[in-house]
């Protein structure tokens, strides 16, 4: 081999590094959740008007009642929100107190959505300007937060709740209540 031949192996070595890196990621799908910067922080202060005539609105102070809550951020125009509706209903039946924030929604659309997919919420606030959504560190819908009895955020779930997430969320609620 001629002098300096080693440098011709450099591209291959770099590429091998790339393959190992992505192979590890592919074969061992790491936790795809994002650690929320809001975890351990208190809920921002807000008072939302009721988004639905038969449920009260959402006020931060009322959530500091010593019991853990599941805060679900959703919208009637969001398809994954429809997909997660059955799981929210299951969570409610298993004893979770589910409170909702409807993002930039119209009352008639909210009513239509709840009529079609059921209403698991004990309280439902309307967030017309996404202020709660941004304040709480959520960037999309749906997202679900576990909030403990002192109003401290304990867990953030991004994306829709799929059936396999239900036990995990119940566990998080239990930990938040302990």
């Amino acid at each position: 081999m001629m002098r300096g031949g080693w440098k011709f192996w450099l591209p291959l070595a770099l590429f091998a590094g790339f393959v190992v890196l992505v192979a590890v990621q592919l074969l061992d799908p790491a936790e795809r959740e994002v650690e929320s910067a809001m975890i351990g922080k208190p809920l921002p202060e807000f008072a939302l008007r009721a988004a639905s005539p038969d449920r009260p609105g959402l006020v931060t102070a009322e959530l500091k009642d010593g019991k853990p809550h599941l805060l679900n951020i959703w919208a009637s125009w969001c398809i994954p929100c429809a997909a997660e509706a059955p799981q929210l209903e299951i969570l409610r039946r298993q004893g979770a107190d589910v409170v909702g924030v409807a993002i930039r929604d119209r009352p008639e659309d909210v009513a239509a959505f709840l009529g079609r997919y059921g209403n698991p919420y004990s309280r439902l606030g309307a967030d017309d300007l996404s202020e709660v959504q941004f304040g709480i560190g959520s960037s999309g819908v749906p997202e679900t937060f576990v909030v403990d009895g002192k109003g401290i955020i304990r867990y953030q779930h991004i994306g829709e709740i799929r059936p396999e997430h239900v036990p995990m969320l119940l566990q998080k609620l239990k930990e938040a209540g302990a």
Partner: peptide, 20 residues
């Protein structure tokens, strides 16, 4: 990824062997 490893890896190996 397997395709990439075969084609790019193969071509770069060939390059390393022949470039000199």
């Amino acid at each position: 990824l397997v395709l990439l490893a075969i084609y790019i890896g193969g071509a770069l190996t060939l390059f390393a062997l022949r470039a000199g």
